[in-house]
Amino acid sequence: MTPSSTTNRSAQSPVTLNQVGVNCDVRISSLNGPACERLRDLGFCEQMQLRKISNGRNLICTVCGAKMAISRDLAEQVLVSPIR
């Protein structure tokens, strides 16, 4: 699997977690939406590094060493900046 070109395109400005390609390492720049608190409880905090593992109806990512599955609605509320 190759990292999506989306990541390269959006290297300058934050994109939502949905827009990031699979196997990309990103850093959370902000949370924007009604489920922010819940996301923070699960480890999706600002400045936290995460890796997207898979796409789909619910996407999987690793954050703080834990593997989490979250819905696309939630992923839409996570704004990230690619690390590389």
């Binding site: 593997k67 979250i70 939630l74």
Partner: peptide
């Protein structure tokens, strides 16, 4: 309160 799907996949 809207409930979203979120699930930890433990090792």
């Amino acid at each position: 309160t809207t409930s979203h799907f979120m699930l930890e996949l433990p090792s």
